[in-house]
């Protein structure tokens, strides 16, 4: 592969910069909710809780997409040092998924802070409303991936690690379906995410075929 711009080594400070960058939306929305409710600001508009809930959901999908984009990006640019940041991005996606769920349960439905809506209602939401069931499933499937992302677990799982982590493809599809079903009628935004994921999947299919051809040749 051709190396672009000669950045074959990771630029100094990149890891820290990435860590700070991926945390910015998380802290921004947490701060904005707090500020909107206590200081009369309007950072998140008229319904800050819904706005933050949706934003955390969208960032979950964005980080899933970035995680999936690392391999093609690495091959295209030759920046092989990108590979080790897949874990950071994947764990970030999981974290935003947890924040998305947390804002829904604690601030939106207000399960823990109020008794107006009970666990039975939330259970009904999770089991009887397909888009919530699918979203919940996507997050649950990310859990084993997050838990097996340490060096120790990678070593322990050996050859089983790769097939297990292919679950990310399932997670991405479920996440997309969840988003698609959640919007009322205007499907433009989920359609954009779906197109990107389709392109990334397509690249993988082509890449796999090329490798196979190269191996048999």
């Amino acid at each position: 592969m051709a190396a672009l711009g000669g950045i074959e080594k990771q630029p100094r400070g990149f890891s820290l910069l990435l860590l700070v960058a991926v945390a910015i939306p998380a802290f921004w929305y947490a701060w904005a909710i707090y500020s909107d409710f206590t200081r009369g600001t309007r950072f998140l508009g008229s319904d800050p809780i819904k706005e933050a809930e949706h934003a955390y959901g969208a960032w979950t999908l964005r980080f899933l997409i970035l995680t999936l984009a690392i391999t093609p990006l690495r091959q295209w640019t030759g920046w092989n040092w990108l590979a080790k940041h897949r874990r950071t991005l994947g764990l970030t996606a999981f974290t935003y998924g947890v924040l998305h769920l947390g804002v829904w349960m604690i601030l939106d439905v207000q399960l823990i802070i109020d008794d107006l809506v009970g666990w039975d209602v939330v259970w009904t939401d999770i089991t009887k409303r397909p888009f919530i069931t699918i979203g919940m499933l996507a997050l649950l499937l990310m859990l084993p991936l997050a838990l097996t992302s340490t060096k120790k677990m990678i070593a322990r799982l050996g050859k089983k690690w790769r097939p297990l982590h292919r679950l990310i493809y399932v997670v991405a599809v479920l996440g997309l379906v969840h988003f698609w079903m959640a919007v009322k009628l205007d499907i433009r935004e989920p359609a954009v995410y779906a197109a990107i994921v389709a392109a990334l999947f397509g690249w993988r299919a082509i890449d796999a075929r090329r490798r196979k051809a190269a191996a048999t040749a």
């Binding site: 939106d108 107006l116 809506v117 409303r129």
Partner: peptide, 16 residues
């Protein structure tokens, strides 16, 4: 079909 109508959030308020 996609959400309960039992409660609501009044715009500007924190509690449902």
């Amino acid at each position: 079909p996609r959400w309960s109508q039992a409660t609501e959030r009044r715009i500007g308020e924190f509690r449902r």
